[in-house]
């Protein structure tokens, strides 16, 4: 409800410093890169990659923040999402091969929806069978979720073989849009749009709905949420399903980005995802968003300017962020 004070009070002060990090890093990189067109290409590629990382990591940060569960099994849902798309893509080949953006988008959305449904259902089973017995037991969580990840990877190898599987981009997503000397890959623009839509949806849900309020409150103090009359275990299950489905969505986007799938693709990206979650602040969706963009653009600039440092750039970035803010960019109150 609205009261007179609601209109009279100034809005809450926002902590803008972390938001400024990405543009500051980008501006700092401009003179080092030298060429404007190269800088734009690197920056947009980094933002697109960052959006995909965000989609994958946002589910993990919610699960980590709300449930205090360190879920290494998250990587399995990335792989499963991508492989689900690969399995179902041939049945949509008419839409995928059509030289029509609209038909290609329909195919992509259908694959995303199916992959999210599959990973959501598997996520529910994973939470009930694997996670539930080890709540509040961090060491066991690490062991059983890594075990789950390994089992999922081996099942994929048993079904699809250890070889690389090609996942070709829909026709209209291939190629680049060229503006003077600047070339922007079409699929990266789509990744940016999908990432922004997911981010906006998550912010809206967390800020404007009762479920969102419950999730934010549960991240801080689950016991008090229960004392107010809400079943936090049901909320846990719902968030885990959503987190797994988001990993599945990320897997589809990541698979199309690479146009190739490997059984270990989920495990490979998990290190990056954990770095993002730590940088952002455990449980913080806003922090995860900025952390994803930051990690991706820094990796791109470093890969271009000093390829030998590229591997360590994210570790260095995480160290610097944690020296500045020891609990991440946007720490959640309880942690």
């Amino acid at each position: 409800m609205t009261t007179r004070v609601e209109q009279a009070l100034p809005p809450r002060r926002r902590d803008l410093a972390p938001i400024l990090l990405v543009p500051l890093v980008a501006l700092a990189a401009l003179p080092l890169v030298g060429s404007l067109s190269t800088w734009v290409t690197l920056t947009l590629a980094g933002l697109a990659m960052g959006m995909i990382i965000f989609i994958i990591a946002s589910g993990l940060t919610l699960v980590f923040g709300l449930m205090d569960v360190l879920n290494f099994g998250h990587g399995a849902f990335i792989s499963i999402g991508a492989y689900t798309a690969a399995v179902l893509a041939p049945s949509l080949s008419g839409l995928i091969r059509a030289d029509s953006l609209a038909l290609n988008l329909i195919a992509l959305l259908a694959l995303i929806a199916l992959a999210m449904a599959v990973t959501g259902v598997l996520g529910y089973a994973f939470e009930r069978i694997i996670i539930m017995p080890v709540y509040r037991q961090h060491l066991k969580q690490i062991l059983v979720t890594i075990g789950g990840l390994i089992v999922a990877e081996q099942i994929i190898i048993a079904v699809f073989g250890p070889v690389l599987i090609v996942l070709p981009l829909p026709t209209a997503f291939r190629g680049s849009l060229v503006f003077g000397d600047i070339a922007i890959e079409r699929y990266r623009l789509i990744a940016v749009v999908v990432g922004l839509v997911i981010f906006a949806a998550m912010v809206l849900i967390l800020d404007r709905t009762r479920i969102g309020l419950l999730i934010r409150a549960g991240v801080e103090n689950g016991e008090m949420v229960e004392a107010l009359g809400y079943h936090i275990r049901r909320l846990f299950a719902g968030v885990f399903i959503a987190g797994s489905a988001l990993a599945g969505l990320g897997g589809v986007m990541w698979g199309f980005y690479r146009e190739a799938l490997t059984p270990g693709m989920g495990m490979d990206v998990m290190v990056l995802v954990f770095i993002v979650v730590v940088i952002g602040g455990l449980g913080s969706v806003g922090g995860c968003f900025i952390g994803s963009l930051l990690v991706a653009v820094v990796a791109n600039y470093t890969g271009f300017l000093a390829p030998k440092l590229a591997l360590g750039s994210n570790i260095l970035l995480m160290a610097l962020i944690l020296l500045w803010r020891s609990r991440g960019l946007y720490p959640v109150a309880k942690r």
């Binding site: 609601e6 008090m224 949420v225 109150a333």
Partner: peptide, 26 residues
């Protein structure tokens, strides 16, 4: 047991399980 990251308003909204906060009660 207050939720520090939530506003005063949001803390009360969450406690009002049956729906919007009653204006007279507020």
């Amino acid at each position: 047991g207050i939720f520090a990251d939530l506003t005063v308003r949001e803390n009360l909204l969450l406690a009002a399980r049956s729906g919007p906060i009653d204006a007279a009660r507020l």
